[in-house]
Simulated scan of single mutants.
Amino acid sequence: MKQRRYTRVPFLRRALVESQGQSMEVQCLDISLRGVLLVRPEEVNWALEQHVRFTLTLGDEQIVMECSVAHVDDDVVGCACDSLGLESLIVLRRVLELNSADPAMVQRELAELIRGDKFNQSA
């Protein structure tokens, strides 16, 4: 089994997903610096690599990820983060640190992500 390089934390919240001109509320199961795992909506047939915009609202703050569908299973959909704005990155980092068993790991993963230039400061 392939070992993940980024920490995923359980984060059960309602979120908004926009794709192909439609938006819908979905259930987020977990979140990481690399993407999100969602409960697959019954009425949706997402395709691999399809672009989606994931928005998670937390009070006055939001995490907005531009994603690609990475895998579709019977009951879940994995979305890989393609870009993430700086404000969203700051909120996501705080969420991960507060919900992680090892907050120092989040800092190491963030440093690796930045070295790989995987986030977009202007988004």
Rank of each mutant, 00 (worst) to 15 (best):
E18M: 01
R34D: 04
G116N: 12
S100R: 04
V17C: 07
V9K: 07
M105I: 10
W46E: 03
D75G: 00
E18Q: 05
E61Q: 15
Q107A: 13
D117A: 14
V77Y: 03
G21C: 05
G21F: 00
P10Y: 06
I90F: 08
E25P: 01
C81Q: 11
S100K: 06
C81K: 07
V77F: 03
G59K: 11
V64P: 06
V17A: 06
Q62N: 13
A80L: 07
Y6E: 00
W46V: 12
M1L: 05
E97T: 05
R108L: 12
V95T: 13
G116H: 09
I63R: 00
V106S: 05
L92I: 09
E49N: 10
V39Q: 15
R5W: 00
V52R: 09
V95C: 06
S122Y: 11
Q121I: 09
I114Q: 15
N99K: 11
Q27K: 15
V26F: 01
N45I: 03
P10H: 02
F54V: 02
R34S: 13
A80R: 14
D73L: 10
L29D: 05
R94A: 11
G35P: 06
M65S: 02
V52M: 02
I31F: 09
R4K: 14
M105A: 15
V39P: 00
R13D: 05
R93C: 09
T7K: 07
R53C: 08
L58Q: 10
R8S: 03
V52I: 14
L86S: 13
L16N: 07
T55H: 02
E66M: 01
T55A: 06
T55N: 06
G59L: 11
S32H: 10
P10L: 10
E97V: 13
A70Y: 13
E25K: 10
G59Q: 08
V9S: 08
V69L: 05
N99S: 11
V64L: 12
S122F: 08
L12E: 07
S23Q: 15
R94M: 03
Q62E: 14
L33F: 15
S32M: 02
S100C: 10
V9T: 06
D74V: 03
M1A: 12
S88K: 06
P103I: 09
T57R: 06
V39C: 04
V39R: 15
V26Y: 00
S19W: 08
R53K: 11
A15R: 04
V17E: 01
V52L: 15
S122P: 01
D102H: 01
R94P: 01
E61A: 12
Q3L: 04
R14E: 15
L16K: 14
V39E: 15
S100H: 02
H51A: 03
V17P: 06
D60G: 02
R8T: 07
A104S: 13
G85P: 03
D82N: 12
V9Y: 11
P103D: 12
S122W: 12
V9L: 02
A15W: 04
